[in-house]
Design a protein around this nucleic acid. Structure first.
Lengths: 187, 187, 187, 187
DNA sequence: CATGAATGAGCGTTCATTCAT
DNA sequence: AATGAATGAACGCTCATTCAT
């Protein structure tokens, strides 16, 4: 009796394949991606998709949740570097830059980013992780005098949600330059 | 023959009614507004709608164009005040504020705002007007030393396109505060 | 300007074809008949079907309404004969017999028959006609002493709704014999 | 090997639980009850359900069979009372009344009642029991002169199958009054 | 023998677009 | 030029049944 249940391995793999396919399809068509198309891309029948995600909304939520997880990881890595001595403002800017770029390459992440900070208090563990990391990053920058005292976690989420992710890279970079002065102190 | 064939005037009036209806419907439902619904709201048949706008995309473009006209007017009014002595940076900020609020109350304007500066050089006269006015506003602020030298018309369009217009008023205001330091000089 | 609108003739014919097809399909499969199948049987696309009947329930209602119309006509013809001197009880029995047979050959009529007397007061004109005719038939029989005083229109509807219409003809006839003593006087 | 292979007893118990769940589910939702729902209510997996009943039709039949058993018991109890001196016609009417009421409270019984007398000769032992009891009840009433000579067991089944069981209690009672004269003698 | 994941045809419905009148 | 009926692909979702474990 070393494992929970028999035959669950396949189901788990299918779930993964569905999520992967959903990420891919939603990456290109946003949440307009069709359930049948996602199922086909995943190599399963629609019924299987619906067994794993009873509703399209559920599938979208799951895809979002995954991306939020990745955002959280990036935030934590940034924080780790800041703790290690890197300037917090640089880490925060880098985090914003990377997240923005990620969204630019995957429509689904955008929806994910837009969902941050919207729900009630920390409904998702991953969001809580991201918030904690970003929060400490901000505090560190404020302590070092490089981040404005008025800046909050919600502000960062707001910027992530409004990044011009469907514009060319040059535009995205310019946007970042335009927006950073609102975060950092000086000049 | 006694029966009236629709005059050019009728056609023109129909075009107007359709655009009005489209603005209204898209104002509330975004571009998800149905063609039939728009036609009905305009008091014409779908066929008539399609005669004036062969494709839904065409109708959306037309609605956008109209809003661009309004943006141009606001920009020109702001410029007029600046010419009259008002601080250019204040006028620019006010312009951004008002445009953002307008978008918040009308989904269609958002699409309009996002289309600015995207096309080839000045395809639309109204966009040219807006660009001219905003451009002079910026120059005046730069001359007065209140607007950063790096700021361009495209930057303003970029901010307009990325404003968090589906968020509550408080969030929209906070966003403006967050973004203004990237435009104005000092602190 | 001799007619209301142009091109309406085709639409009317389509409506008829759809109703006919619906009667046929529902005749064999009851209200489980699929919308696509009905459309195909009618020689139109689904969209056309939905233009005429926005909901499956609407189509079913329309089919029912038609059958109720036929029931009303039979009832009125029976009444006419009774007025002309035929024994009311015989006419009532014949009416029940014919209606029952009609149902036996068309599942849809059954649903129709079951809907009689269920709704609020005379929602449908045809039902009102049927009720009036059956009512007078009963009264005449009661006056002639051949129909029990306790019998009401609702009783007739109840019998129509409970006839064993999915049974062979012999069974249906036996059922009628079984049920008639509750209506007629004597023995 | 130490792990238990399911005994015959387990299989029997599963069959019972499935039937119980099916009765319950079909009682409320008729034969529209879903196989998955029934399985879940029974605490088994669908596969198990299908092992016991290879087809939904088989399960429905089994549920029906059970209810036939109950009908048989009621019929036999009625007969016992008639043998003990109670008027056969009253017992027959009571039997009809009770059966009808049972159907009204359980959709599944209806299908059961409708299946009576339809199959080949006495396919089910329970149906044979019911038929024997009802048959003797009728004969006793006929001997006593209270039940019409033409009445047969099939007639009783026919009435049971056609009772207005989805109507309010008052309607069901009226129907019984309407139908009894066809069974009993005298006015 | 039990499990429950997988299948896939089918359902009712929507909507941008076409075209006969 | 206007009408509005017709088209049909597409959508999200259900459910009886099969089959690998």
């Amino acid at each position: 009796m070393s494992h929970n249940r028999p035959s669950r391995a396949d189901a788990v793999r299918n779930r993964r394949r569905i999520l992967e396919a959903a990420r891919e399809q939603m990456g290109s068509h946003g949440s307009a991606a069709g359930m049948d198309d996602i199922a086909q891309a995943a190599g399963v029948a629609v019924g299987t998709l619906y067994r794993h995600f009873p509703t399209k909304a559920d599938l979208v939520s799951a895809v979002i949740a995954e991306h939020v997880g990745e955002v959280a990881e990036d935030a934590e890595a940034s924080l780790a570097r800041a703790r290690g001595g890197a300037p917090a403002i640089d880490e925060l800017a880098g985090f914003l830059d990377r997240t923005t770029e990620a969204i630019a390459h995957n429509q689904a992440v955008k929806v994910a980013a837009r969902s941050l900070g919207v729900e009630g208090p920390a409904e998702q563990p991953d969001e809580a992780r991201a918030s904690a990391a970003v929060g400490e990053l901000i505090r560190r920058g404020q302590d070092a005098g490089t981040i404005r005292g008025s800046v909050s976690v919600a502000d960062i989420y707001l910027l992530m949600a409004t990044a011009p992710t469907d514009q060319p890279a040059a535009v995205r970079q310019r946007w970042l330059q335009l927006v950073l002065p609102g975060i950092r102190t000086g000049q």
